[in-house]
Each structure stands twice: as C-alpha cells, then as structure tokens.
C-alpha cells in the first residue's frame, strides 16, 4: 500500500460525518430501515437535523447512492 500520507488522527469529525451520513451505498428493499436524507445542518445549539424512515417494502424500490451533486 502506498502510504505517502497516512490519515492524520485529527481528521475532524466533520469529515467523518460528511461521508458516513451523506454518502455510501443506500439500499432499499425488503424490510430495511435506513437513515434518509441527513442534512448536516446545525441549529443554534448544534442540533443535527435528520430524518429516519423505513424504506418501502417493495422489491426493486428506488436505490440511491452517491452521485454528483451541484455545487
């Protein structure tokens, strides 16, 4: 493995949240619960807004994954 730069330990939590809450494969299908559409929006008291929903229980339901977003 080419380890020119190893991940520094002080990678901010923001970097982690920006990925794990927003990206990664999202599967929907039979009896799957998933965290949907988490916006990294903080209110005054740093409350993370989010929504959680049960995916539709149908085969071949919409699948969303990482995609290019407009800036």
């Amino acid at each position: 493995m080419h380890n020119v730069v190893t991940k520094s330990r002080d990678v901010t939590l923001l970097e982690v949240l920006d990925r794990v809450l927003d990206k990664g494969v999202v599967i929907s299908g039979d009896a799957v619960i998933s965290v949907a559409d988490v916006d990294l929006i903080y209110l005054g008291l740093k409350v993370l807004l989010s929504s959680v929903e049960t995916m539709e229980q149908s085969r071949g339901a919409p699948i969303t994954g990482p995609m290019q977003e407009p800036t």
Binding site: K23, G24, V25, I33, S34
Partner: peptide, 17 residues
C-alpha cells in the same frame, strides 16, 4: 461502504439483498 444506519430485520433479509 454502506451509509450510516443501514439495517436489516433479519439475517435472511440481508441474505436476500
């Protein structure tokens, strides 16, 4: 990698996926 909070009710539903 899967998104945070990807959950299945049972091993069977994971296997089906």
């Amino acid at each position: 990698p899967f998104k945070f909070g990807t959950l299945f009710n049972t091993d069977d539903s994971l296997r089906a996926m």
